[in-house]
Amino acid sequence: MSEMVEIRWHGRGGQGTVTAAKVFADACLSGGRYVQAFPEYGPERSGAPLRAYNRVSSRELRMHCPVLKPNIVAVADATLLDAINVADGTPDDAAFIVNTVKDPKEIREKIQARPTQKVFTVDATRIAIDCFGRPMPNSPLVGVLAKVSGLISLEQILEDVKKSFGKKFSQKIIDGNLEAARRGYEEVREG
């Protein structure tokens, strides 16, 4: 792992994007790493575009500012691709994760990713509906992020989803989210 990995999430209010960033940060704590997870707070309306950020580093994180050059961009809602430039500020080796039914090649074209940048897609909404009956793409995306970032194992992320959701939800919902994270990890496609 390079010294610091910066992640930018694009989602819409109510999709659990902020929760996803928090769960991912918590899971990355293992191994003595430093983490940050923070959303960009605006008027909190369901359906409005929002951004959230993660930093994961082997060194102490002192900066307190938005991520401007993300190594990984995770898009929880593909309709945002028409509204905002998700590639803003990305370096040449950045990776994109997009929740969509579409093929990674099609998304690559749409966001005009550079040849050196990686593009991953996953039908996270479908997975979520299959696993726990609600269109909340966050758990599958956390699974995908574990794989794409290489920062943590599938087991670590499942352990953390269990811990984070265990405080609030029934066993059925927890199991559904665990299955969703596992399927995200396995079903992500690169292109």
Binding site: A21, A25, Y34, V35, Q36, F38, Y41, L61, H64
Partner: peptide
């Protein structure tokens, strides 16, 4: 402490 920047951000 700084509102949101610290109050609402998760850190180790």
């Amino acid at each position: 402490m700084d509102g949101f920047i610290i109050s609402h951000s998760i850190e180790r």
